[in-house]
Design a protein around this nucleic acid. Structure first.
Lengths: 251, 251
DNA sequence: CGGGAAGTTGAAGAGCGTCAAAAGTAGTGG
DNA sequence: CCACTACTTTTGACGCTCTTCAACTTCCCG
């Protein structure tokens, strides 16, 4: 069984927090606001968010928080990719999601985080003290409503992922994964073209319930059969979307 | 690959709806209110729920709704067990959850259901027209807040299930499953003692990402090693909780 | 009681994991 | 600019867990 060892180059404390409020009208100028929880607020209400937000920047591999740590902050991804994962006692790892611009992190019903979060690429986030954000949620029901909507989306995605983990073959898993990455990129308004796959084979494996080796072999297979093309810089071109879609749906 | 064929004894139309409001003060008398979304409302506000709720009773095997059907209703389980599942094109099935008293069903962000739901045991639910409940949510933010809390719980459970599906062995899966069933029963205030396992081996397999045969074999193994005892009526006695806990955590 | 579904058990096989090594890639410093 | 190192990815050989296919047993419910 494969095990996972954390190797941290630098801790949360060094994560370069800077007040969002330091800028002129940071939330007002936020280019991904329409994707995030903040879309629920009117422009003149955004100052309330400004007032409690702190910007955080992470380098690849930087931890954001660890499972079982007191959940004192909630986060909003503004740039880059964050991976979220849980560990078993012996080190086996399950990545439960890759988050990017607009995604919300830290919705914990407990007082501690239910999972660990770590940067995959250089990433930026808005950090909110839990208590202050909860206060804001009470005063602006439409914020809470927006959050409920996002939670619904996440739940649907989680169920889709359960189908993948429980019932799909390696080939089907990789196919679904690539299509999902492309869909997400499109949803964030990124131009069509090769899909950016910034995470390592190990991360992909831990997300899909496979080993690094199987992920690699499956990519090679899909490449050999002309369904995808592997470009450099972790980019993948989807040559035969129909074949991938058939794989993803189990036909 | 195993396939799944729906065999329906009776459809939704025959599902015996009766107005909750037919009773004197149905919601006020609801014995599982503290578990459900309704716990968010004060006693005098409950009549608002009464006004839009319809009771539904299902026999084992009865469908509640199907994936891709228009999501016109939301539900609250009041008794029995409901299974929720998704199908792949070729019939492979993933059960994403077993729901019981207090659980909420139908939180869809789309206009269609994202999964199918079907009774495992005789079951009762409260049915709410989607639009009317959404109206209520707007007027009572604390209802929405409660729903957000429940969604948070569900998300945490979904992530736990991803760890199980992606990274646990058959033995670990069954161990985790039995402990989770016991924990849920305790959380609903049911007396300690043998765990009730009302679902079939096939349902358990589709929930844990295993085949019927593997589920059966694993139960037999755990029985032989003295960790559990199989009683009649689908009840299981947990003889060695420590061993099960060690299995569940991957040690 | 009898018939059908659900559950159990057995034997054989496949898909993916494990272990190992080679090839590719990136970062570092002389 | 290139060598040196360390890590990631790929490829290969082999083994094991779980699936598949099949037969048998048990449990219900009419």
């Amino acid at each position: 069984m494969k095990t996972f060892e954390a190797k941290r180059t630098r801790g949360l404390a060094e994560a370069l927090p800077r007040r969002v409020a330091g800028d002129a009208s940071p939330c007002g100028a936020c280019s991904i606001r329409h994707l995030s929880i903040c879309a629920a607020l009117a422009p003149d209400e955004l100052s309330e968010m400004d007032a409690i937000a702190t910007a955080v920047d992470l380098a690849p591999g930087d931890p954001l928080f660890d499972e079982a740590e007191p959940a004192e902050h909630l986060f909003n991804v503004t740039a880059g990719t964050i991976k979220v994962y849980k560990l078993l006692a012996d080190g086996r790892r399950q990545v439960t999601g890759f988050l990017s611009a607009g995604d919300f992190l830290g919705l914990a019903h407990e007082t501690t985080y239910a999972y660990s979060a770590e940067a995959v690429t250089p990433a930026s986030l808005c950090r909110f003290p839990r208590r202050k954000l909860e206060n804001l949620l009470q005063r602006y029901p439409k914020l809470e409503s927006r959050l409920l909507g996002m939670a619904g989306h996440e739940l649907a995605a989680a169920q889709e992922q359960m189908v993948l983990l429980g019932r799909k073959t390696a080939k089907e898993k990789i196919g679904s994964f690539l299509l999902a990455l492309e869909r997400q990129a499109a949803g964030r308004g990124q131009p069509a073209g090769p899909v950016s796959v910034p995470m390592s084979r190990a991360d992909i494996g831990d997300y899909l319930g496979l080993t690094t080796e199987t992920v690699s072999r499956t990519f090679t297979q899909l490449k050999s059969s002309g369904v995808i093309r592997l470009l450099q810089g972790g980019r993948v071109e989807l040559l035969d979307r129909d074949a991938l879609a058939r794989l993803a749906e189990g036909q």
